[in-house]
Nucleic acid binder design. Structure first.
Lengths: 336, 336
DNA sequence: TTGAAAGCGTTACCAC
DNA sequence: GTGGTAACGCTTTCAA
């Protein structure tokens, strides 16, 4: 548990040179079995733990990654974090978790800080909208969930369009035509693609788009809550709502509860992404489920793979799209 | 955004020595205004970012902290993390987040890893039960939520006993006598103190303890769910339940819902710690609220304060207890 | 197979 | 005020 034992102490105690100790510990060069054992014994006796920072100065590798997310209290992000951290741990990397509050300037702070230098690569759910920001990365970066076209980076995203399309189509198939969407800003692909999927499903089924049925706010619960209240106040309220992320969906559920409207009876509802409330209420709310944990594991694997590629011929950016699944429960009324 | 500019490049470009550049950047020694400006200009032009690892090798300080928690997906812990990280950021520290899955061996892995060496101090919600583990820390550590007596470390905890006592007393005052508790293991003070508070309140009011009414499992939702079902199957089921943490409470709420029992009517319920479901259901569930975010901020402040104390005369361990608040809603039936 | 020594990018001490 | 340089703990040639 001590910290002040250095490689020199080990070398002295084992009657070998520091070079030999280093070789034993890193196992690259070969060392006679005898000296190896001797060194290892002393290492254990002295409880020696190498100073990785000193090593990093030479090798230019830290065995540390960073995962940068907009918000550490959103369960979606913690799930991605968990996936990333677990894979990283497995492969011998430590992971920094950094939360930006979805602010460009806080994200800048991370990238300008020395911290950035201390990591070998980054899993990033970015706050920046401009491709330029991403183009000037000089470290391996894997974008997750949000992908900025033309940024030149690898990414792991999900089928936002497909998920939204399926969700909307499902409502249409159950006879709904007055279908609202509550979604976040159109800043990133998540927002635009889900909105687009919703619109396309309506168009494909000959249903006209109604402006009042399309609510854009932020991605937080209160947007879901307020927007739902506004929707239900319309002269002709929608018969179904598509809530485009986990928190918005929770807000919608709360609003409907407060309006004393029964889900699946008075109003039909489909959410995007699992959430506590959707699973709790009866009838359970249908949602588009996405592989959150796997987004993290996938990103970490891609990142570490990239780190290993010694031949750094800037290959073309690789974008992996993971599929989603529509889970149908009783929250959608059949209108015939 | 480049990383390969060193202090030497700056020195050369500015026609000064590296020592001077270092002085300008660290601002300790004094430098003439003229050279200071010259150096600062070059620093900006070259986009120089100091290599903090190299500095750390000399100063033995990294400006990095670690916050070690049992589980990153429990909202209680993310709230503590957020508090810690925010204060740390404010004071110029970066923070590592490390999740142990509440396993002693994973916690060992953290403390044995070189990572530990790279941080100046640690905010710890420990998995270890033995004081010995904590005694051999050779870094400043602040224990949060769980405190091991005799460990010799500082800690930030909450009034578990008082919270549980108040919750139980509240049930008693509303006329309940058949009061059950669903709680976690007695491993740490959180479990023992809450259980003790429950028992003491009953005793103080002349109510006999019933073994069947005291359920011990883990701190997860499923324990709340299963234990509630068992309780309600008893020949004489309790009229009220005290759920001793956030996840257990969620489990209890789900079980009562599945049993088609109405909270506050068929069964009364008080939780410990806020949670999504308790806030959602009608009537809203009364809970003992604790200052989760503040536990994090407090711990970070104490830790950084400790780091600044040059005179490291091992002072007596300092244990700070933060108060809790009983929030009363409609989940408790008045039995007269 | 092993050791000596040159760095890695800083800080801190000692001169001037 | 400023510059030279040893030192931090390690890896990695280059010789032996």
């Amino acid at each position: 548990m001590t910290c002040d034992i250095t490689i020199k102490d080990v070398a002295k105690e084992a009657n070998v040179s520091v070079a030999t100790v280093s070789r034993v510990l890193n196992g690259l060069d070969r060392v006679s079995d005898q000296t190896r054992k001797k060194v290892l014994k002393v290492v254990k006796e002295l409880n020696y733990v190498p100073n990785t920072m000193a090593a990093s100065m030479i090798t230019k590798q830290t065995q540390m990654l960073a995962v940068v997310v907009p918000e550490i209290e959103n369960p979606f992000y913690t799930s991605v974090i968990k996936g990333t951290v677990n894979v990283a741990k497995e492969k011998g990397y430590h992971t920094f978790v950094f939360s930006t509050n979805d602010s460009e300037s806080e994200e800048d702070a991370f990238f300008e800080s020395s911290l950035r230098r201390n990591v070998d690569g980054i899993v990033l759910i970015g706050a920046h909208k401009d491709p330029e920001f991403y183009q000037k990365m000089n470290k391996p970066v894997i974008l997750v969930d949000r992908y900025i076209d033309g940024c030149g980076l690898d990414g792991v995203i999900i089928d936002n369009f497909g998920g939204a399309y399926e969700a909307t189509k499902y409502l249409i198939e159950y006879g709904h035509r007055d279908i609202a969407i509550i979604t976040g800003p159109q800043t990133f692909n998540d927002g635009t693609e889900r909105h687009w999927g919703y619109q396309q499903a309506l168009k494909d089924n000959g249903i006209e788009l109604v402006n009042d049925y399309q609510k854009h706010g932020d991605w937080f619960e209160n947007n879901g809550y307020q927007s739902t209240k506004e929707l239900m106040k319309l002269t002709k309220p929608p018969t179904a709502i598509f809530a485009a992320n986990n928190l918005i969906c929770q807000g919608t559920i709360k609003a409907l509860r407060d309006l004393e409207l029964t889900i699946g009876l008075d109003v039909s509802l489909v959410g995007f992404d699992a959430n506590d409330l959707a699973e709790f209420v009866k009838p359970r709310v249908s949602v588009v489920k996405r592989p959150t944990y796997e987004m993290g594991t996938h990103a970490a694997e891609m990142l570490i793979e990239k780190l290993k590629q010694v031949d750094k011929h800037d290959s073309f950016p690789k974008k992996v799209t993971l599929g989603v699944e529509l889970l149908k429960f009783g929250s959608v009324k059949y209108l015939g």
